[in-house]
Amino acid sequence: MLLRFLLSISILLGSPVALAEGFVFGKPASPESATRTVEIEMGEMYFKPAFVQIKAGETVRFVLKNVGNFPHEFSLGYTAMHREHREAMLRMQAEETLRDHGHGAHAHLAHAGPNTLVVEPGQAGELTWTFYQPDWLQFACNIHGHYQAGMIGQMEIMP
């Protein structure tokens, strides 16, 4: 009941609600608890597949393979969350440039939260998540310019 109330308030205000045990749409989980594995290829400004359906209550292990030439991010969230995330990354990058005169390249990528993973070129990574209830989310790369170039996927959490 409380979760539904928080979700309703979140939707009305247009802002995601982070809960102590995770986010309004779910929480991190251990790979051993996964009931399903979804492989996602990350390339130059795309995710393949770009649409994923999940069942509410399901725990999914995402295996993320970066086949591109640049670091890419896999971040679960709502549109507003991604916008805030990109703005925070730009601020961090600007502060880093001022502080290090550009020598600490990509240090701003190391801030990933529990719903986000950065995968370097030619590498793979995993993120496991339990989804609470029916919803629509995006998975996106919020590295500067990538989201704007279309590196966004859609996720439907079905009943």
Rank of each mutant, 00 (worst) to 15 (best):
P71T: 11
A140P: 04
H82C: 05
I54A: 01
G43W: 01
L19I: 09
P134C: 11
T97Q: 09
R36K: 12
E21I: 00
M42N: 11
G125Y: 06
T97N: 07
S33G: 05
Q93F: 09
N66R: 07
A18H: 05
E32A: 10
A34N: 10
Q148S: 15
F74K: 03
R83Y: 12
R99L: 15
M89D: 07
R83N: 09
T128C: 10
C141Q: 02
R83T: 08
A29M: 08
A124Q: 15
L137P: 01
L137C: 03
H85S: 15
H106C: 12
V67R: 03
A112G: 07
P16H: 03
G14H: 11
I152K: 08
M158W: 09
L6V: 05
W136Q: 12
F70L: 11
L127R: 08
R36M: 05
A34D: 09
P114T: 12
E87F: 14
A50D: 15
E32K: 10
A80S: 12
V38D: 07
L12F: 04
H108Q: 06
L64D: 01
H111G: 14
G77A: 10
V60D: 05
A110C: 13
R86V: 05
M81H: 06
F139E: 03
S8W: 15
L117W: 08
E73A: 03
F139W: 00
H108P: 04
M1E: 13
H82A: 00
F23Q: 05
V63K: 09
I157F: 06
A50G: 15
M42Q: 14
H146A: 08
L12D: 02
H85L: 14
G77Y: 09
E39C: 07
S75V: 08
E21N: 08
E21G: 01
M92E: 14
F23H: 02
E96D: 15
P49N: 01
P121T: 11
Y147V: 08
M89E: 07
I40L: 07
T128R: 09
G43E: 00
E39N: 09
V24E: 01
G22C: 04
E21P: 05
S15R: 02
G22T: 04
A56H: 00
P31H: 01
N66P: 09
R99C: 12
M92G: 11
G102L: 02
E32V: 07
I9E: 14
A107F: 12
N115V: 08
T37Q: 12
L6K: 03
P159T: 05
S75P: 00
F5W: 12
F47C: 02
L137V: 02
K48M: 07
H82D: 04
G145Y: 06
P16D: 01
V17Q: 03
G125K: 02
L12A: 04
R91S: 03
W136E: 13
R61T: 06
E84I: 11
I11G: 01
F5L: 13
E96I: 09
L117M: 14
S8V: 14
T37L: 10
